[in-house]
Nucleic acid binder design. Structure first.
Lengths: 365, 365
DNA sequence: GACCCATGCAGAAACGTGCCTGCTAATCGG
DNA sequence: CCGATTAGCAGGCACGTTTCTGCATGGGTC
């Protein structure tokens, strides 16, 4: 009986609820909700009055209550595969950084925020996946039988993957490059530049990117009648890359052109070439897959294959939000983003033009 | 009257609630909640029975309802300052990538997840900040009168900043390097290596890092009696960096050593040095602040100052979670992370040792 | 003047969980 | 054998919001 008089009981002091706004404005809770959300039919006078009172009280609606009521949280999960003990190589390479950055801004532009989550999910109540209400999830390079993806789809949550899912992994949509076509174009470019034996620096991991790129290389070799020359290494270990680059150039059947599948391969191969006294591009043509801008100012500048992570990150998020809001029914759920081969000095036998004057000081070139 | 018989009304089909688990297990809702959360006093038989039924039904507790009830969401905001029109330069430089990665894994290890949020907050109901329930926020390089930080602190939410807040901006705690000491140590190192006139490549932005580093440089110059030689450029524009590097080396009072404040300055300065025929380190000593590993394999390898972003990201999150959980009362709220000067060839007059054999082919060095 | 509809707002039922309160039966000390 | 304690569990309120329903009121139309 005496309890009915306590206006706010358990609420944190300092945070005003919608009830406080209604009481202060002399209207009902419904009116406050409608006025602030632009719904219902209210005269502008009431609307502005409620807004003013809410502002004066510093009212901030509870996101948790809104999510509970509406079922929409405005949160999108972002997860990447783990490598070994390291939590994950998120942004270890420039690709992930650019992709995540584009995905973040695309999500924010549509009123969503990204939550970074691990690729593995313990089946325990302390799992982070249990404690966050998601509207959907972006998965980067899901594994063949990704348990997280399976579970999310089973819950009816949309999942869009960067990288086409292998096997029968069900996803709402996916975005990827045409890796085979990119590798074939790249190898043709090297052959046009005069390469007779093209080597490959690849990874031991079984992700889709590595697999497709490697098989495309092998098919190309078979087509042109060249013996494959490649070295593999665990891509998550930066030191192993330098060692593998060295191994590749130390082989008796040393290639006269190399394509490195991973971002640091360019500098690693360049350093290895210097160690063996090989000039680039005179003795060795070089291309690597990278999003880093450092290869524009190396000596010499290195030709890179860009996977356009910005476009991928944007497309992934757009597809996911469309699915969340039910806008993409009937549209294609597969999207292929073209790659871009940025041709620089390292893959051209004749440098396009010499550096602009600037006399070399010591041993005159 | 007839409504009391409908077991689940508006709930999404396919998602079982705690009521369904209670009904299926033949116990009350309280017992289910206690059994799954390890609270209350229940015999192990009941506990395991409830768990089994919950597993069988695929029960997933609603994060929104739990957050509404407990007031804790398990979410931590992560925000960085914006630069121009670009949403934000998040992970534009390796520092942010490494810092965010360490912060993410530190948060996940303690059961929290990071939400990436923009530094600006429109005062509108469509603002992302309104729609996400946060337990606390990590702010990278807050501006002098950061409105987001002020608002969050006013709401009673803990805020920990990477970079000491300038002015009277209130924060719960902050983590930073001792930038002055780092710059002074670095300049002393260059002077020890024989530098007579040390130049600086700095930024036009007014963030704390740029300001402290620049003033430390100016103070050092004053102390040793050297005229300051520096060029400024907008750090968010990668092209401007190369131009500024060129400007610095084109000056009549050309420095014989340069420290670049930002990550890409190393390659930019190296390229500029090549254009002017300056050998590194013989004619020009070079140091830049970077977390990138490419500087280990450039020609020559470049000495870098590491701000230890991994340690900073970890420390920031630990302090924030301690504050959220009320564990750090009385502990210091300021934490200084030591920097590390990674000395390579570019800042040593005498290279420590020549490259291991490997005959240079053409113009014999 | 009776009917109808649009307008402006209030009441109240959920959303799904956590936890405080309380009730019953079993154990225990004396 | 009896009061006191405790284990084991159920009832029900509250978190703060959205939204369905409904009740007045007023101005039109026939």
């Amino acid at each position: 009986m005496s309890r009915t008089e306590t206006p706010r009981r358990g609420s944190r002091p300092g945070r005003a609820g919608i009830r406080d706004v209604a009481a202060a404005a002399g209207v009902s809770i419904t009116t406050v909700s409608d006025a602030l959300n632009g719904k219902g039919r209210l005269p502008d006078a009431t609307r502005s009055h409620v807004r003013e009172v809410a502002d004066r009280l510093g009212y901030r609606p509870s996101a948790a209550a809104r999510t509970l009521r509406t079922g929409k949280s405005g949160l999108i999960g972002l997860t990447v595969t783990t490598y070994g003990d390291e939590p994950f190589t998120f942004t270890e390479f420039a690709y992930f950084a650019e992709m995540a950055r584009a995905a973040t801004s695309a999500a924010l532009a549509r009123g969503y925020a990204l939550v970074i989550l691990p690729a593995s999910s313990r089946h325990s109540p302390f799992d982070v996946w249990q404690n966050v209400a998601l509207d959907g999830t972006v998965v980067i390079d899901p594994s063949d039988d990704d348990q997280v993806v399976t579970e999310l789809m089973r819950q009816g949550l949309p999942v869009v993957s960067d990288g086409r899912p292998s096997g029968d992994l069900p996803v709402t949509a996916w975005v990827d490059n045409d890796h085979e076509a990119a590798v074939l174009e790249l190898l043709d470019h090297l052959a046009d530049a005069g390469a007779r034996r093209i080597g490959l620096l690849t990874g031991t991991t079984t992700d889709t990117y590595t697999r497709l790129s490697t098989t495309a290389y092998l098919r190309w070799c078979e087509r042109v009648g060249q013996d494959p020359v490649y070295e593999s290494y665990p891509a998550h270990d930066p030191c192993a890359g330098a060692v593998a680059a060295d191994r590749l150039l130390a082989r008796p059947d040393r290639p006269d052109a190399v394509y490195g599948l991973f971002d640091p391969n360019g500098t690693d191969l360049l350093a290895a070439a210097r160690r063996y006294g090989l000039r680039v591009p005179e003795d060795l043509l070089l291309v690597c897959c990278s999003e880093s801008t450092v290869y524009a100012s190396t000596e010499p500048p290195i030709t890179t294959l860009s996977l356009k992570p910005r476009r991928i990150g944007t497309a992934v998020v757009q597809l996911l939000i469309d699915a969340i809001e039910g806008l993409n029914t009937g549209q294609p759920v597969e999207q292929v983003i073209p790659t871009e081969l940025i041709i620089r000095t390292s893959s051209q036998r004749r440098p396009p033009r010499t550096t602009v004057s600037a006399p070399r000081s010591p041993s005159g070139d």
